[in-house]
Design a binder for these strands. Structure first.
Lengths: 253, 253
DNA sequence: AGTCGCCTGTCCATAATATGGACAAGAACG
DNA sequence: CGTTCTTGTCCATATTATGGACAGGCGACT
């Protein structure tokens, strides 16, 4: 039922926008958009420049990179209320952050991407702050992304990984590696990765499912590796798993 | 140089989105979108439904109305920093709100629309709260919209009014009325309207220009009419004009 | 009951639109 | 000064989006 047709151009424009969103403030060079979307360069060029004329995309004069423009947040103002997930997760994040003391991330799934929607900084003096609220990555690249893939039926996860394959190269990974990590996480009950995006960091992620069983988000703790030995990993994982279940209750009710 | 071509569909989709944004949470019926955009119904229908599949638009099951979807704020997260205008206007709004005591609105121009970007509630016990942050209207409909039109060269204003003409009917006005109000505001140096959107309210708006002379926003005070007699109108207008100039300085520097 | 008015959704032949191969030109590098 | 990277533009082509026409649903009025 999905593939309604007669709007190829619109779908393509949105694909471009989502790639640009992953580039955040700095934006993305045209060639990168071409690679990530699999479209031809003239097509991407045309789309991007029309979006610039419409105020949806901006071009940074210095770097020549393209980024999400002004009008997108303006359109977003039409939706005033904060998301259900954010409200439901708030007390759990506060509790877990106080208990653990390391940086805590809440990461939602949106299409084939993960999107960091909340971050809590702990009290421990060394904090991993690599990821900001708004950060967006292909599902499978980050610890949270692997956790979310692990929480869905294997065929669905494979489909998403295949769809994101072109984008993995930019993050120094590939489909096979990702699928391996997903399998490991599924066995373990949560995801753990020894080598975080920043050297010397370690991450633990648990998934959060909606009432219909689809994964909606992940909760992640990142810390310097030395602070997450096997024993503490166990402790932290238990807290995260407990709070993940609490959030699931809150969404369901 | 503007009209780059080869993307009619994308432009149309954005036109639809902007109309939907004006409908806020409640959304807009399809027929209204058709009227406001001047597109044919099959075209709008197709665009809207593709945008639904893409998560950009939502349809309220009860009412059948279409509204801006979840993914728009998600894309907007790619632009973390608050707008320049909001930062620059903050102290002025605080000051003016304390001094005046009635509700104060900051309204920006975006394309052919006005967008309420900030609101300060005063200390006087009766406050006009008709407009929320995020409210969007065709330029010319609201007091702020007329002020912004009055601040630009007459031919530009006429062009915008012509472009919005189809949408005026939904707000019980028309191009001729709007142009009359604009002329009056231009003579007066600020805009005043005796009959606000809500019965019995009166509004005063001043415009704020960017360094290049284009109007960027308007500052508006709304109050019950009895509270804004000729004498107080004068006082309030002076405060608003003073703060408008202050904001212009802050943007320029 | 019928009929009018206004709404949403769908079909498909057609024409207009978006496409992408090919070309051009600038920048960074050795 | 060739090589390889990038971004931008042209235009003949066929793919894609278009909109007139048709269909069905709902509520109001008679």
């Amino acid at each position: 039922m999905e593939p309604r047709q007669g709007a190829q151009a619109i779908r393509r424009a949105l694909a471009v926008l989502r790639i640009l969103a992953a580039g955040r403030e700095d934006g993305v060079p045209l060639a990168e958009v071409v690679r990530a979307t699999g479209l031809t360069r003239p097509t991407v060029h045309r789309i991007v420049h029309v979006l610039i004329e419409e105020g949806i995309v901006e071009r940074h004069n210095k770097t020549g990179r393209y980024a999400i423009g002004n009008q997108v947040p303006e359109l977003a103002l039409a939706r005033p209320r904060p998301s259900r997930l954010l409200v439901a997760a708030n007390p759990s994040l506060r509790r877990a952050s106080a208990e653990i003391g390391d940086t805590l991330f809440l990461t939602a799934r949106t299409g084939n991407d993960t999107l960091c929607v909340d971050r809590r900084i702990g009290i421990y003096p060394i904090q991993v702050l690599s990821i900001e609220v708004g950060a967006r990555r292909p599902l499978g690249v980050s610890s949270a992304g692997v956790a979310i893939l692990a929480a869905m039926p294997a065929p669905d996860a494979r489909k998403i990984v295949a769809a994101n394959e072109k984008r993995f190269a930019a993050y120094q990974t590939d489909a096979a590696t990702v699928l391996g990590q997903v399998t490991a996480a599924r066995k373990r009950g949560y995801n753990m990765r020894e080598i975080g995006l920043v050297q010397g960091t370690k991450s633990i992620s648990t998934w959060i499912k909606t009432p219909d069983g689809q994964p909606a988000a992940a909760m992640t703790v990142s810390a310097v590796r030395t602070r997450l030995g096997p024993r503490r990993e166990q402790e932290v994982a238990e807290i995260l798993l407990r709070e993940a279940r609490t959030i699931e209750q809150a969404i369901g009710g």
